[in-house]
C-alpha cells in the first residue's frame, strides 16, 4: 500500500519533469533569433508563399496556441516534419534510436562487468601498490574527452593498423533487407567495435570506483565479520555477503549511467559517423533543421528522464529494506 503511494508519487514527478522539459524545449526553439523557417524558405518565395508556409506550420498563431498545438501533436506522436528530409521527425528519430541504444547498452554492459569485478578486486587489495597505481589511472580515464579517445583509437586501429573501419555501420554500398539483418551481420559488429570500446573505456571508471568504495565500506560491516565467524568460505563472505550488498548502489547507477551516456554519445557518434540520435542532433542544429533538432533532443531527454525513474524504482526493487516496509 505504502510502496504503491511512493511509486505513484514518483511517476507523477516524472510526468511533471517531462512536461517541464517539453515546455522549456518548445520555448527555447521558438524564442531563438531568426525565423524558424529561414532554412526552409527559398529566397525566391513571394511574401504570399511565405505567409502560406507560416500558416502551414502554424507559425501565424499566437505563441500559447502554438504551444497547445505542439502538446496536442506530441500526444498523437507527431513531432513535426523535418525541413531537410521532408519526412516526419518521429519516423526519423525512431529509426535512429536503436543505433544509439545499441551503442549505449553494449558499451555500458562491458564497462559494468569490468568495473564491478575490478572495483571489487581493488577493494580487496586496498593499500597495495596495484591499488595505488590503478585508482589515479582510473580517475584519469574519467578525465578524458570521449571524442579524443575515439580519435586516438581511430588513428591507431583504423588508419594505423587497418584493423577496423573508420566509421558508419556498414561497408559502402552494403544493403540489408531488414534492420535485423543489419544488426545481426558481422559487419555491423565490426563497425561497432571501436565506438563501443571508446565508450566502455570512458564509462568503466564510474562502476569501478563506486564498487570499490562500497565494497570497502561493506567489508567493515558487522555482518561480513559475522560471516567469517560463521566459518563460511571466503567466496561466501566476499561474494554472497560483501559484494551482494556493495552491488546495490552500483546496479542503480547503471540506469543513471545510461542517461549520461546517451548525452555523451553525441560526440562519439560524430567521431565515428555513427548514424544515431546524437549525430543527428548535431547535424540538425548545424543545418537549422529545428523540428528534427527538437525531436532528437526530446528523444534523448525522454531516455534521461525515464532512466532517472528506473534508477529509483530499481533501487526500491533491489533493496529489501525499501521493498518490504
Amino acid at each position: 500500500m505504502k510502496a504503491i503511494t511512493v511509486i505513484g508519487a514518483r511517476l507523477l514527478q516524472t510526468a511533471f519533469v517531462l512536461l517541464a522539459v517539453i515546455t522549456i524545449l518548445f520555448f527555447m526553439f521558438r524564442l531563438m533569433p531568426g525565423s524558424p523557417l529561414a532554412a526552409y524558405i527559398d529566397p525566391n518565395f513571394t511574401p504570399e508563399q511565405q505567409a502560406e508556409l507560416m500558416a502551414r506550420f502554424g507559425l501565424d498563431q499566437p505563441l500559447w496556441r502554438q504551444y497547445l498545438i505542439y502538446l496536442g501533436n506530441l500526444l498523437q506522436g507527431d513531432l513535426g516534419e523535418s525541413f531537410f528530409y521532408r519526412q516526419p521527425v518521429a519516423e526519423r528519430v525512431l529509426a535512429l534510436l536503436p543505433n544509439t541504444l545499441i551503442l549505449t547498452f553494449s558499451s555500458l554492459i562491458i564497462a559494468y562487468v569490468f568495473g564491478v569485478l575490478a572495483g571489487a578486486y581493488l577493494a580487496w587489495k586496498r593499500g597495495s601498490v596495484v591499488e595505488q597505481i590503478c585508482v589515479p589511472l582510473v580517475l584519469t580515464t574519467r578525465a578524458m574527452p570521449e571524442f579524443w579517445l575515439g580519435m586516438l583509437l581511430l588513428a591507431v586501429f583504423s588508419f594505423g593498423m587497418g584493423w577496423f573501419p573508420a566509421g558508419g555501420t556498414r561497408p559502402p554500398g552494403a544493403e540489408y533487407d531488414s534492420l535485423w539483418a543489419l544488426y545481426s551481420s558481422a559487419d555491423f559488429w565490426w563497425h561497432m567495435t571501436l565506438p563501443v570500446m571508446t565508450l566502455a573505456i570512458y564509462s568503466q571508471g564510474l562502476p569501478l570506483l563506486l564498487m570499490r568504495s562500497n565494497m570497502m565500506d561493506v567489508m567493515r560491516e558487522d555482518f561480513v565479520t559475522m560471516a567469517r565467524i560463521k566459518g563460511l568460505s571466503t567466496f561466501s563472505v566476499v561474494i554472497r555477503h560483501a559484494a551482494r550488498n556493495a552491488l546495490l548502489p552500483v546496479m542503480t547507477s547503471f540506469a543513471i549511467a545510461v542517461g549520461y551516456q546517451i548525452q555523451g554519445n553525441v560526440v562519439v557518434e560524430t567521431v565515428f559517423s555513427w548514424p544515431g540520435l546524437g549525430r543527428e542532433l548535431v547535424r540538425a542544429v548545424s543545418t537549422a533543421d529545428y523540428p528534427l533538432a527538437q525531436g532528437a533532443f526530446l528523444m534523448i531527454a525522454v531516455v534521461v528522464i525515464l532512466m532517472n525513474l528506473v534508477a529509483d524504482l530499481l533501487y526500491a526493487a533491489l533493496d529489501p529494506r525499501v521493498t518490504h516496509e
Partner: peptide, 15 residues
C-alpha cells in the same frame, strides 16, 4: 557467536 547488535550482524539483503 551472538553479536551485540543483531541489526548490523544480519545481512540486510537476505531473509
Amino acid at each position: 557467536f551472538i553479536p551485540q547488535s543483531a541489526m548490523n550482524s544480519l545481512d540486510p539483503v537476505y531473509t
